[in-house]
Design a protein around this nucleic acid. Structure first.
Length: 273
DNA sequence: ATGACTAATAGCATTAGA
């Protein structure tokens, strides 16, 4: 079972690239972030034609998350929860669309297999200090509380998405370049480290203990051409899924295509039960 | 150096991203 996360940076602008990626790599589950469209504009039929069942939590202009399940491979998606119940950083703004939780279901000879999949788009947190950074840290605390609830259920679970956290110094091309950024502040890192301390397994780090894996390259200053990237898209696994971890990867080649997102798809494959 | 790109929405710029 291959599970993937991909910050697509606008579904309208990215649809041809996204469909290409789904067709070429065929993940069982795809978590999408920065959909940047309202619910009514989500192109559900485009995914259904490819053999994917989508659920989505949209928002006008920015944010927005979605989960796709490969129906051709026998998977379906059942929504469990949307939103963490935390308001955005602006006065009276209400909640932003950053959290979508679902069960991926597959019927087999040995009964029904259920995998909890959580798709997150964690707040960026810049500039700092300020309300946006405070919001990021508060959001991470809310996320941790929800992840502890899921942990207590003792179910196979994965929390995938754009965490907007560079966990370690070897997850960035140059520490100095990002030192003052919200992505690698001590508070951001320690909030992420707490998730790992709770027992969640960082899949990409586990199979790449020396770091040096990037999932994002800025559009600016020739970052892609110079390989000036960093790792902020993460796949966290419960013990049940960590035991089944086979491989991880970043579909880096897709970052180099025409009209690409600034993130690359990041995936993990899990052994079948 | 708060620049450099890119996307969305509403325009003849601004907000947001990271």
């Amino acid at each position: 079972m291959k599970i993937a996360t991909y910050n697509i940076n606008g579904i309208k602008a990215r649809l041809p690239r996204l469909k290409e990626w789904l067709t070429e790599t065929r993940p069982a589950v795809a978590c999408l972030q920065e959909v940047k469209s309202q619910d009514k504009d989500f192109p559900a039929a485009e995914f259904e034609e490819l053999g994917y069942q989508p659920i989505w939590h949209g928002q006008k202009s920015f944010n927005g998350v979605a989960i796709l399940a490969d129906t051709k491979a026998g998977y379906s998606v059942q929504e469990v929860k949307r939103g963490l119940g935390i308001d955005g950083p602006k006065e009276g703004e209400g909640e932003q669309s950053r959290y979508l939780e679902a069960d991926i279901v597959k019927d087999g000879a040995n009964g029904t297999e259920r995998t909890r999949i959580v798709c997150i788009y964690l707040p960026n947190g810049n500039p700092l200090p300020g309300p946006k950074f405070d919001y990021k840290i508060a959001w991470m605390e809310k996320l941790r509380a929800r992840m502890l609830e899921i942990w207590a259920e003792e179910i196979p679970a994965a929390v995938l998405g754009d965490y907007n956290v560079i966990p370690e110094d070897d997850d960035v091309f140059a520490v100095k370049a990002m030192a003052s950024d919200a992505l690698m502040q001590p508070e951001s890192r320690s909030a992420y480290a707490r998730l790992l301390a709770d027992g969640w397994c960082d899949a990409v780090r586990t199979l790449n203990p020396r770091g040096g894996v990037w999932t994002y390259w800025d559009y600016q200053a020739g970052a892609w051409q110079r390989d000036h990237g960093f790792r902020i898209d993460h796949i966290l696994l419960s013990p049940e899924l960590a035991d089944r971890l086979v491989a991880v990867g970043v579909d880096k080649e897709h970052r180099g295509r025409e009209k690409a997102s600034d993130h690359a798809p990041t995936w993990a494959t899990l052994r079948d039960n």
